[in-house]
């Protein structure tokens, strides 16, 4: 370290940036946290790490500093297959007239207990 007054605030001039580092960016990982037993793992965020071990350790430090979880998953982001956001209608909207898939469709039994 250079500089180094007591407060570290000596106002010295910064040197020019050094040569750019030549390395491949670390892969991106998605982090899922199970907050307590009995619950699913839920997406918490993402991070960069060189391998799965480091991804898991970094995820612990980054996403569970306050007992947020009892279990962690890390998944390479590249392994996640997503649906196409622009194909929303074809992909998700079930055809009209299928409300019989919901309990609220069945009204004749109203008033009958435990049903």
């Amino acid at each position: 370290m250079t500089g180094g007054s007591t407060t570290g605030d000596d106002g010295s001039t910064a040197p020019a940036a050094g040569p750019a580092e030549k390395r491949q960016p670390w892969p991106l990982w998605e982090v899922f946290v199970r907050s307590s037993r009995g619950l699913s793992h839920v997406h918490a965020g993402s991070l960069h790490a060189p391998d799965a071990d480091m991804a898991l350790r970094n995820a612990r430090d980054l996403y569970t500093r306050r007992n947020e979880g009892v279990s962690l998953w890390v998944v390479p982001s590249s392994a996640i297959i997503t649906s196409d956001p622009s194909a929303k209608e074809q992909f998700f909207e079930s055809p009209q007239g299928k409300d019989y898939r919901h309990a609220t469709y069945y009204t004749k039994s109203e008033g009958v207990k435990h049903l």
Binding site: D10, T13, A14, R23, Q24, W26, P50
Partner: peptide, 26 residues
């Protein structure tokens, strides 16, 4: 300003070997 930037740069450059080692290990 100058000192904050200098520290940030130092930290990044001083950490380069750690990043290289981690990548080599992976």
């Amino acid at each position: 300003n100058a000192q904050r930037m200098e520290r940030r740069r130092e930290a990044h450059e001083d950490g380069a070997w750690v990043r290289e080692a981690a990548a080599a290990y992976a």
